[in-house]
Nucleic acid binder design. Structure first.
Lengths: 105, 105
DNA sequence: CGAACCCATAAGCACGTACTTATGTATCGC
DNA sequence: GCGATACATAAGTACGTGCTTATGGGTTCG
């Protein structure tokens, strides 16, 4: 119920959403993640903490490094929310169907 | 590109998202919408203006009334963003497939 | 014509929050 | 062991924004 709320609030910030998107490339340490962003390292850590609290990211410690990994299943409540409105909206369904067909092969 | 950003920012506020969801019941005037919310009428108007600017809602004027209607296609960029991560995420695909099958009949 | 209603805009305020710098805690290399 | 590196937390600040009350423009009805 409040899961969508947390997800919307967490992903609303552009920088934090960019961090999430960047993790789509694969597991990454904080410093790896930090390079390429114009904000400070603590800012990155704070965004990662928020993403983790929202279930969008998982953490793995190894020595002095902390590796973060995408957790796409965390998007499920958000996806469910969007799907409720997708039924209004036939044209886009077709494209999704194509996507699913491709994935079946 | 910035379309998702606007959608995330617009839908991040719980009250505004509740207004959007309530419009799922069908076209409604501002005062109809206002009843049932604990915020003032100007607050509702401000949320509607934001939703309209994001393309999530359309307006129809009739005399002294303003009727607002859901525009689910406005969610397309957000849905597209979510879909990019849905591919990571096989179990949920199955349910979607069922939904599509039901809709084919 | 005037009063009541519908809705939007203006102005001001209060609060959340994303950032910064500063500091703390481990861990690695020499 | 010591300095350097990796990351997290603390504290403080600045800014966006969602709310309020006040007001204005426009429409309907008596």
């Amino acid at each position: 119920m409040t899961a969508e709320a947390d997800l919307f609030r967490t992903l609303a910030d552009p920088t934090r959403r960019a961090v999430f998107e960047r993790l789509g490339e694969g597991e990454m340490s904080v410093s790896d993640l930090h390079s390429g962003f114009s904000v400070s390292q603590p800012a990155i850590s704070q965004h990662l903490a928020a993403l983790k609290a929202a279930g969008l990211v998982s953490e793995r410690r190894a020595g002095r490094n902390a590796y973060y990994r995408l957790r796409p299943e965390g998007l499920a409540p958000l996806a469910g929310w969007v799907d409720r409105y997708r039924t209004f909206w036939p044209e886009r369904i077709g494209k999704l169907k194509e996507l699913l067909k491709d994935m079946d092969q």
